[in-house]
Design a protein around this nucleic acid. Structure first.
Length: 809
RNA sequence: GCUCGGGUGGUGGAAUGGUUUACACGCAGCACUUAAAAUGCUGUGGGCGCAAGCCCAUGUGGGUUCGAAUCCCACCCCGAGCACCA
């Protein structure tokens, strides 16, 4: 036994001895299974302090749950395909597989230095053939069900990464990986039909214990909007222009109609006099990037087509304009413009001198409506609306729809902002999309535009080793360079055919990895049905808020699709979700090499040991908040651990009674704090307890209880003392979490707060459960209180075992 | 613009109707030391005061209450998400 706390000596030893201790059995009699999931890391090369926050802090919960008798699985894996690894590989001029595998090996070592209870026997890596085989298999199942399809659409293209991005990966018009401005490109791409699940993705949020921010983010992202689709009539034609509106009550106020520049009817409607002008406008508008059109452009522009359409409700003729403030890909790409009741239409009408007609009035039934300086967008009563005049907006919407529906001129309609998920990537480092294109079958009009899924027996479609795996600017995947790999036979007709050369978005890989943890080595299926039942859905999932509208949405979609395919028997993957914050540099800025504010966990391990880092990260503030790394504050935790060491090294026997109340309330509070992820107050509870034990001395029995409370936070130190000082044979991490005894939770005395006229004046010790009368007597003994009471006490307010308030006035 | 968080000492934070500032960091003083580090002890929101003590303070202004950091209303500021989505 060393006389001094020396973490670097003890930590390695126990990490070694724990090596296989946390490999989880699928079932343990009498124990409930509990999968505690954290987001598996990208093998970027080096662990940073944020990884410790993401993995070592939840490990406190993992260890605690085990002590509470649960069969806990705390799995780990690597999300190893994708751009970051590939770009790094290009930069370092090595093969991505070699690069990634080296990183995994190194990061595995680093992860082991946390002293976390990972089950390494279940390690999953998305680049393993036995893993991506099932990613491909899932794709084929989705394809068969009509949930994966190929289509030519306008997609987001990153010129720097030279690949397509999903909408979720475009932030403020820029690529979320490299920050390059994204351009629109028309390409044929594989998509997943996430829009089929739009309603469920919103409605099922209700049954989840998730942070409100995440739920709202997902609701906004899906963007459900209920309204009406109305047909405006084109004179002398059977065709109509459909518009979508949520405000059918303002239909009488429509004074013009606007088409998006992309709208298919634009050129046909435009009359010859205006054709040049309109064509020029369209050219200008479509040249702009999405960013310019939506974000920077505030001033609205547009041109008149010369055409008119008829408002179906009052047969009024209104002009048709083209303007790029209407977006082509939402609703019908056409809107009825009601300047009086929509701010955008109002601005446009003012600029081009179009009429503003007020049909919803806040003054109803007064005869005059206010003169508008901006659009009036609230609900009120309808005016100037024929038989609908006088109705509330709500009523008006219903009645107008009812009338037009009878004439087949309108129907109710729900629109979503959500788009289908584009999963094709024109990059090398991903799972190949397991499809084969056959020219012969295509000619015969076979399914999927001539694409056939690879026979399931032939999975995985292996990613070939390529000398030159760099992306090309023309939008063709690097895989297209490997002629031998591409050439294959059509699984349907047996003739020569070609493989799909795009790879899958890595978010497909990570949409199902948690399922694989249940049965990571299965060769016959993605996981055995029984094992899935034993472990899933995931009980608690802890990760970063940046995945709110990406990974978390995709995984929910995937799970719902698998549920409908009968592959799993639950339709939500994660029952409880908690977000963690971000650790910033000491300068409160995001950590980055260029800023030079990166905190290296390996250095910290050398200096303070893993226990101090874990505990400081837990202590620094609310877990969902994160915050700047404070290089000085970790000293406080390190000192605390030294004092724990000394508690056993140089015990100070208690001369007083044993620590009933203080100890038992700490057992209760610490446990509750861990369960609620309030790690910071959990740590402070232990600090308070140690302060008391040092001050008054303590019995060995109480010290041992304290050590068990500390074990999840500082596992190495607790183990060292438990085994080497207290000479126990088995690990402290197999011990039961101490029970608290209700009878100790009530102290004999409590601090009675005495207020006079609501102001705190004194605090006196009083026996538990005393009556109001007794409390008043006690209160009046205090000199401080007496001084404040001039003319006597008129009435008292008494809160049992807490306070008495004497009111004089 | 809309939606969701948040604003408490020199700092990180605690307290979600009842002692504001727990627990820590930092700082100051003292002890130990030739000295320093480490450690231990004491003090530490602001103002006035020799002191006892009194007054003030949880972004700002109002309200509810015996009592408000906490609940309600308005406003200011910071962060996050969505955004010409009709």
């Amino acid at each position: 036994m060393m006389a001094k706390y020396n973490p670097s000596k003890i930590e390695k030893k126990w990490q070694k001895s724990w090596m296989k201790s946390f490999n989880t059995k699928d079932a343990v009699k009498g124990k409930e299974n509990f999968m505690l999931l954290t987001e598996f890391p990208y093998p970027s090369g080096n662990l940073h302090i944020g990884h410790w926050y993401a993995f070592a802090v939840p490990d406190i919960l993992s260890r605690y749950l085990r002590m509470k008798g649960k069969n806990v699985m705390y799995p780990i894996g690597f999300d190893a395909f994708g751009l970051p690894a590939e770009n790094a590989a290009i930069k370092n001029k090595v093969n991505p597989r070699k690069w990634t595998e080296q990183n995994i090996a190194y990061m595995t070592k680093q992860l082991q230095s946390m002293g976390a209870t990972f089950d390494w026997s279940r390690k999953v890596s998305t680049i393993d053939q036995e893993y991506y085989k099932w990613t491909q298999w899932f794709f084929i199942q989705l394809f068969k069900k009509g949930l994966a399809y190929r289509a030519k659409t306008l997609v987001n293209w990153c010129p720097k990464d030279k690949t397509v991005l999903a909408n979720e990966q475009v932030v403020d018009g820029k690529c979320d990986r490299c920050g390059t401005e994204v351009v629109q490109k028309e390409l044929a791409q594989w998509m997943l039909k996430i829009t089929d699940y739009a309603d469920k993705l919103i409605d099922d949020l209700e049954k989840l214990d998730w942070p409100e921010v995440t739920k709202t983010a997902q609701k906004n992202w899906v963007g459900r909007s209920r309204g009406v689709e109305i047909n405006f009539l084109i004179p002398n034609s059977k065709e109509t222009i459909k518009v979508f509106t949520t405000r059918a009550d303002t239909l009488f106020g429509a004074t013009y109609l606007v088409l998006a520049p992309e709208h298919p009817l634009v050129t046909r409607l435009t009359n010859d006099d205006n054709l040049d002008k309109v064509n020029r406008y369209i050219q200008e508008a479509t040249k702009k990037t999405e960013l310019e059109r939506t974000y920077l452009e505030k001033e609205k522009t547009g041109v008149f087509t010369g055409a008119y359409v008829v408002n179906p409700v009052n047969k009024e003729k209104i002009p048709v304009w083209v303007a790029d403030y209407v977006v082509g890909h939402y609703g019908t790409g056409a809107v009825m413009a009601v300047p009086a009741h929509d701010q955008r239409d109002f601005e446009f009408a003012k600029k081009y001198n179009l009429p503003v007609k007020m049909v919803v009035c806040p003054n109803y039934p007064a005869p005059t409506c206010p003169v508008l300086e901006k659009a009036f967008t609230d609900d009120a009563h309808l005016v100037d609306s024929s038989e609908f005049t006088g109705m509330t907006s709500e009523e008006g919407r219903n009645k107008i729809l009812e009338k037009l529906r009878k004439e087949k001129l309108a129907e109710s309609k729900v629109n979503y902002k959500l788009h289908d998920w584009v999963i094709s990537r024109q990059r090398y480092w991903g799972a190949p999309i397991p499809m084969i294109h056959c020219g012969k079958c295509a000619l015969r009009g076979a399914s999927g535009q001539g694409y056939q899924p690879v026979s399931e027996k032939e999975l995985p479609v292996k990613l070939p080793d390529l000398e030159d795996f760099k992306p090309s600017a023309d939008g063709r995947s690097p895989l297209s360079k490997d002629g031998a790999w591409i050439r294959t036979k059509c699984p349907k007709c047996g003739k020569d055919a070609e493989r799909e050369t795009d790879t899958m978005d890595t978010f497909v890989d990570s949409s199902w990895y948690f399922l694989r943890y249940a049965d990571p080595k299965n060769k016959k299926s993605f996981a055995d049905a029984k094992k899935i039942k034993q472990w899933l859905p995931v009980k608690t999932y802890i990760g970063g808020a940046e995945h709110n509208t990406m990974h978390l949405l995709y995984s929910r979609f995937f799970t719902k699709a698998l549920f409908d395919l009968g592959l799993v028997d639950f339709d939500e993957p994660f029952l409880t979700r908690r977000n963690h914050g971000v650790i910033l540099g000491p300068d409160s800025q995001k950590m980055s090499k260029s800023r030079g504010n990166v905190v290296d966990p390996d250095d910290l391990v050398k200096k303070y040991g893993a226990d101090a880092i874990r505990m400081y990260l837990a202590f620094m503030g609310p877990y969902e908040q994160g915050g700047p790394w404070s290089p000085g504050s970790i000293n406080g935790v390190y000192r605390f651990l030294n004092r724990v060491w000394n508690l056993f090294e140089k015990p100070k026997k208690s001369k007083e009674k044993e620590m009933g109340y203080k100890l038992h309330s700490a057992i209760k509070k610490t446990g509750e704090d861990i369960e609620n992820l309030n790690f910071n107050t959990g740590v402070s509870e232990l600090m308070k307890l140690l302060n008391v034990m040092e001050k008054q001395g303590s019995f060995r029995k109480d010290n041992v209880t304290f050590l068990k409370l500390l074990a999840p936070f500082a596992p190495h130190l607790a183990e060292e003392i438990w085994r080497e000082v207290l000479k126990n044979k088995k690990s402290i991490h197999l011990e039961k979490w101490p029970d608290y005894d209700e009878k100790y939770l009530r102290d004999e005395n409590f601090d009675l707060i005495v207020q006079v006229d609501g102001k705190f004046r004194d605090v006196v010790s009083a026996p538990m459960d005393i009556s109001e009368e007794e409390a008043k007597k006690l209160a009046l003994v205090s000199e401080k209180v007496k001084k404040q009471i001039g003319g006597g006490v008129r009435k008292t307010v008494f809160v049992k075992n807490r306070l008495i308030n004497l009111i004089t006035g």
